[in-house]
């Protein structure tokens, strides 16, 4: 039989096999490695540049200062002799951020938990969308809303705290004025960091492996016991980093706090009374009218804020790393 299915003609020339020899380095690989390495280095360089700038520019102010930089609660850097210190800033910043965290972390985690594991699918997506929107509201809006609308409505809370918890100096209000207080600023900050915390914790909550959830339920856990047994432990590192991101924003928030607080420079332990100041708002308020030493002094306070936020982040990472073995990532 000489029939063939192939059409007559010359057979296709054999494709030359490339063989296994050749340079092991490809240009594309090399380029990509260079780019990604460069991006990594750039971050480090930027961080270092900021640190160097802050230290360099703060030296003249710190040298001119005749008071203790850390314990003084006054800010007259451009006077002769120059007197300034960050005690009031440290207090105000930690106090407002602390109040914000105290309010926002439980509520944010609660919102995230509800969206991730309790709400119906439709309600969950709506709520998730709304919390994400809240994160997009500019801080100046929060500041204006806080001072115009929220402050008058918080008078009752301040009075209640004074009436019933006034024996604690923190809540006592001797002035009888309840606006522009650290408490009010902290509450606005709490609202501002709420979406950050709830959006990130929600993401982590929904990633809890189904196997862990079913393991808890099959042991006879109720819904809440399942949450504590499977979801919280799995999500712990994520919840910590979410809180730290929120704390970072609360510590550094400038304009809303500048609007909410009265611009007095003192340590005011009565958190329902007017008064108090933070690092960021102090810099924003004083920058334009500061002299040479004044600017340097403000940069020095910025350096402290920089160090505080770095320390907060590192502490968070340490907490996460300490239990990495148990993290569930393996």
């Amino acid at each position: 039989m000489s029939t063939t299915l192939e059409p007559p003609g010359t057979p296709a020339p054999p494709v030359p096999h490339p063989g296994i020899k050749g340079a092991a380095v490809r240009r594309g690989d090399r380029l990509f490695v260079g780019l990604s390495r460069g991006a990594g280095v750039l971050i480090l360089v930027t961080m270092a540049a900021i640190a160097v700038f802050l230290i360099w520019k703060s030296i003249p102010g710190l040298q001119a200062n005749t008071a203790n930089f850390f314990t003084t609660a006054e800010w007259f850097p451009d006077q002769k002799p120059s007197v300034f210190g960050i005690a009031a800033l440290t207090f105000g910043t930690l106090m407002t951020a602390g109040i914000a965290m105290l309010l926002a972390v439980p509520v944010g985690v609660g919102i995230a938990l509800f969206i991730a594991h309790y709400a119906s699918r439709r309600l969950a997506s709506t709520l998730g969308f709304v919390t994400d929107l809240l994160a997009a509201v500019p801080s100046i809006i929060f500041g204006m809303w806080g001072i115009q609308y929220l402050t008058p409505h918080l008078v009752g809370l301040g009075q209640w705290l004074n009436d019933y918890l006034g024996f604690i100096p923190l809540f006592a209000n001797e002035a009888g004025i309840y606006s522009r207080s650290i408490l009010n600023a902290g509450i606005v900050l709490a609202i501002m960091i709420l979406p950050t915390i709830s959006a990130i914790t929600r993401e982590v909550f929904v990633q809890t492996p189904r196997a862990h959830i079913e393991a808890a339920l099959a042991l006879g856990a109720t819904r809440w016991e399942m949450v504590r047994m499977a979801i919280f432990p799995f999500s712990r590192p994520g919840m910590i980093s979410a809180s730290m991101l929120g704390l970072g924003r609360a510590l550094g928030e400038t304009i809303a706090v500048a609007l909410m607080l009265s611009a007095t420079y003192d340590i005011n332990i009565h958190i329902t009374q007017p008064g108090g100041i933070t690092f960021a708002s102090n810099i924003a308020l004083k920058w334009n009218e500061a002299g040479t030493i004044g600017l340097s002094a403000l940069v020095a306070s910025g350096l402290v804020l920089f160090v505080i936020t770095l320390a907060v982040n590192m502490a968070a990472r340490l907490v996460i790393a300490r239990r990495a073995e148990f993290s569930g990532a393996n």
């Binding site: 492996p209 196997a211 862990h212 079913e214 393991a215 808890a216 339920l217 099959a218 042991l219 006879g220 856990a221 109720t222 047994m229 499977a230 432990p233 799995f234 712990r236 239990r323 148990f326 993290s327 569930g328 393996n330």
Partner: peptide, 22 residues
Amino acid sequence: PVNVRRTIGMVFQRPNPFPTMS
């Protein structure tokens, strides 16, 4: 149902020990 699951234990296809627990 919670009590049912406490009475009738279950083992799953993929081993699922709680990773955060000893």
